[in-house]
Simulated scan of single mutants.
Amino acid sequence: MRPTREAAFQLLTRYNETESLIKHALAVEGVMRYMARKRGEDEEKWGIVGLVHDLDYEKYPDRHCAKTEEILRAENWPEEYVRAVVSHGWGICSDVKPESEMEKTLFAVDELTGLVTTSALVRPSRSVMDLTVKSVKKKWKDKRFAAGVDRTIIEKGAGMLGVELGELITDTIMGMREVADAIGLRGEIPA
Results as ranks from 00 to 15, higher is better:
residue 140 W to I: 09
residue 143 K to D: 14
residue 117 T to H: 08
residue 75 E to Y: 13
residue 108 A to H: 01
residue 83 R to T: 14
residue 101 E to F: 01
residue 134 K to H: 10
residue 90 W to K: 05
residue 75 E to Q: 14
residue 148 G to T: 13
residue 93 C to P: 10
residue 115 L to Q: 07
residue 74 A to H: 11
residue 117 T to L: 08
residue 80 E to Y: 03
residue 74 A to M: 04
residue 83 R to F: 07
residue 77 W to L: 12
residue 78 P to L: 03
residue 165 L to C: 11
residue 81 Y to S: 06
residue 116 V to E: 02
residue 72 L to W: 07
residue 83 R to Y: 04
residue 93 C to N: 13
residue 82 V to E: 07
residue 85 V to E: 02
residue 162 G to H: 01
residue 100 S to E: 09
residue 93 C to W: 14
residue 155 E to S: 03
residue 124 P to G: 02
residue 75 E to H: 11
residue 140 W to N: 00
residue 150 D to L: 06
residue 115 L to C: 12
residue 151 R to L: 06
residue 110 D to T: 09
residue 151 R to P: 00
residue 84 A to D: 03
residue 116 V to A: 03
residue 111 E to D: 07
residue 167 E to Q: 15
residue 110 D to Q: 07
residue 98 P to D: 08
residue 117 T to V: 04
residue 90 W to Q: 05
residue 109 V to Y: 05
residue 73 R to I: 10
residue 139 K to V: 06
residue 79 E to L: 09
residue 120 A to R: 00
residue 109 V to G: 06
residue 77 W to K: 06
residue 163 V to F: 04
residue 88 H to W: 01
residue 99 E to N: 08
residue 154 I to P: 01
residue 130 D to Y: 13
residue 154 I to R: 03
residue 143 K to C: 09
residue 125 S to M: 12
residue 126 R to A: 06
residue 78 P to M: 04
residue 81 Y to W: 12
residue 107 F to H: 03
residue 124 P to A: 13
residue 118 T to R: 15
residue 83 R to G: 06
residue 134 K to F: 06
residue 148 G to C: 08
residue 134 K to Q: 15
residue 124 P to C: 04
residue 152 T to K: 11
residue 90 W to Y: 15
residue 83 R to S: 10
residue 130 D to I: 08
residue 150 D to P: 03
residue 129 M to F: 06
residue 162 G to A: 01
residue 100 S to P: 04
residue 114 G to W: 02
residue 90 W to R: 04
residue 82 V to M: 11
residue 76 N to S: 14
residue 94 S to M: 09
residue 78 P to K: 09
residue 93 C to F: 15
residue 142 D to K: 06
residue 80 E to T: 14
residue 79 E to F: 12
residue 90 W to V: 02
residue 119 S to N: 14
residue 150 D to F: 07
residue 101 E to A: 12
residue 72 L to N: 06
residue 152 T to M: 09
residue 118 T to C: 14
residue 94 S to D: 13
residue 95 D to N: 14
residue 152 T to N: 13
residue 98 P to Q: 11
residue 100 S to H: 03
residue 74 A to P: 10
residue 74 A to T: 05
residue 92 I to T: 12
residue 125 S to V: 05
residue 114 G to K: 05
residue 115 L to K: 07
residue 123 R to A: 12
residue 143 K to G: 10
residue 72 L to T: 05
residue 78 P to E: 08
residue 85 V to T: 01
residue 104 K to M: 08
residue 138 K to N: 14
residue 138 K to L: 12
residue 155 E to A: 11
residue 152 T to P: 00
residue 94 S to G: 08
residue 80 E to H: 05
residue 98 P to T: 08
residue 145 F to G: 05
residue 104 K to A: 00
residue 146 A to I: 13
residue 97 K to C: 15
residue 145 F to Y: 03
residue 127 S to V: 13
residue 97 K to D: 10
residue 75 E to D: 07
residue 116 V to W: 00
residue 148 G to K: 14
residue 133 V to D: 03
residue 82 V to Q: 02
residue 164 E to S: 14
residue 77 W to A: 09
residue 152 T to Y: 10
residue 157 G to V: 04
residue 85 V to F: 02
residue 143 K to F: 14
residue 104 K to W: 01
residue 159 G to Y: 00
residue 150 D to T: 11
residue 90 W to I: 07
residue 93 C to T: 11
residue 162 G to V: 00
residue 91 G to A: 07
residue 119 S to H: 01
residue 86 V to W: 00
residue 117 T to M: 11
residue 96 V to E: 12
residue 143 K to L: 15
residue 106 L to Q: 03
residue 78 P to Y: 09
residue 106 L to M: 13
